[in-house]
Design a protein around this nucleic acid. Structure first.
Length: 363
DNA sequence: GTATGCTTTCGGC
DNA sequence: TTACGGCCGAAAGCATAC
């Protein structure tokens, strides 16, 4: 089954301050540029009735909520959301044979063993988990129960908030066929549009489309995945996620610029932040990457990889500077936002320390 | 021909 | 009228190694 916490950030803000729960609530990421510069992270269902959605500019959300008068705009408080998420995930985990957290507000629970493959029992279990989280944290979430992760996810999406949708194996075909292809995870706006151009609108259109054609258009991995998904077939296991694979920070510049010094002023802060997180988790990095979002919102990235694991702040800063400098030489536009990313992460261990010391002392 | 690793882009939340 | 975040993982596309 898939569990998905309802309008998570906004629900937490309602919980923290119940007086706002009958008003439109919009949780915002302010960029620090101007009064309303930034984007919407999420909004409660009252705000959604006004057309407020994740990702739209805050100024646009304000315009859409102009006549509601009592709309509440709050800044995102990520640390708080993460701490509550950790507690709730701890509750979910107890009910699962195996557990896989996806993002801050979603998780897959394989409960096959403990309900002995019985979907009625799975439904009862879902109710018990709902009650438990309601009692302990005062929060609601939506559940999808299905024969695999793909179906569980779509089932959960089909009834929100506080939903509970069960799709039994014999119901999969009827459930899936009429849905828009975009309901399949991995088919976002861009892919949906390409499919539309191929005459694919519903999952049933996708199921009837030649698999070779899909592979030619979307590549082997995705083409095969889309074909199987259209038939409700998915054998990916519910498995615990390991260490994070990358640590990144991105921020909006005070003003658009292509001045390396101004960019590095901000970038050095970002380097320190990602480095602090790296040390906190006891990790090393092999790759340093930068990302630049230009004033026209196009996204560009560059990265460099070392032969051995690294663990020094200075390396991060110097690599970032080198990459920004190189990138500026290749572009003519002004930068609006810049980011720093560490990847190819590894655990800091004795052997790696020795290698670092050896290289450090011999050079 | 297959496996593996690196760079960049895509897109979910 | 326009307006525009900050993360993350996955995949394509390419190069290289065996």
């Amino acid at each position: 089954m898939l569990v998905d916490l309802d309008y998570f950030y906004a629900q937490l803000e309602e919980k923290r301050n119940p007086s706002i729960k009958d008003k439109p609530v919009v949780v915002c990421v302010y960029s620090g540029r101007g009064e309303d510069s930034g984007a919407v992270a999420t909004a409660n269902y009252i705000a959604r009735e006004y057309g407020v959605r994740s990702g739209i500019p805050i100024a646009l959300a304000k315009k859409r909520l102009k006549e509601s008068k009592d709309a509440v705009f709050l800044p995102m408080d990520r640390e708080y959301y993460e701490s509550v998420s950790d507690r709730i995930m701890g509750i979910f985990r107890v009910y699962a044979d195996s557990f896989e957290q996806v993002g801050i507000d979603e998780a897959y629970l394989d409960v096959t063993q403990r309900v002995q493959g019985d979907f009625d029992e799975a439904k009862e279990l879902a109710c018990r988990i709902k009650n438990s989280v309601k009692e302990q944290e005062g929060l609601t979430f939506s559940v999808g129960v299905g024969p695999n992760k793909l179906i569980a996810k779509i089932a959960a999406d089909s009834q929100k908030p506080d939903g509970l949708t069960v799709v039994r194996p014999e119901e999969v075909q009827v459930f899936l066929s009429p849905l828009p292809a975009g309901r399949i995870i991995g088919i976002g706006g861009k892919t949906a549009k390409r499919m539309e151009e191929m005459g694919i609108n519903t999952v049933s259109d996708l199921a009837n489309h030649d698999i070779q054609g899909l592979i030619e258009t979307f590549g082997r991995v995705l083409g095969t995945y889309f074909h199987n998904a259209s038939l409700g077939v998915d054998d990916s296991p519910v498995q615990e996620r390991g260490e994070v694979e990358s640590i990144s920070r991105i921020a909006t510049l005070k003003e658009n610029t292509r001045d390396l010094d101004l960019i590095m002023e901000k970038a050095n802060e970002l380097c320190q932040d990602v480095y602090a997180k790296l040390v906190e988790r006891g990790l090393t990095f092999k790759s340093v990457g930068i990302v630049v979002i230009m004033k026209d919102l196009t996204v560009h990235s560059r990265s460099k990889t070392f032969d051995t694991p690294m663990n020094q702040l200075d390396i991060v800063k110097r690599s970032a500077k080198e990459l920004f400098e190189k990138f500026l030489n290749e572009s003519t536009n002004e930068a609006r936002r810049v980011g720093v990313r560490l990847s190819s992460l590894g655990k800091e261990e004795k052997i790696q320390k020795h290698i670092t010391e050896f290289l450090g002392s011999s050079s």
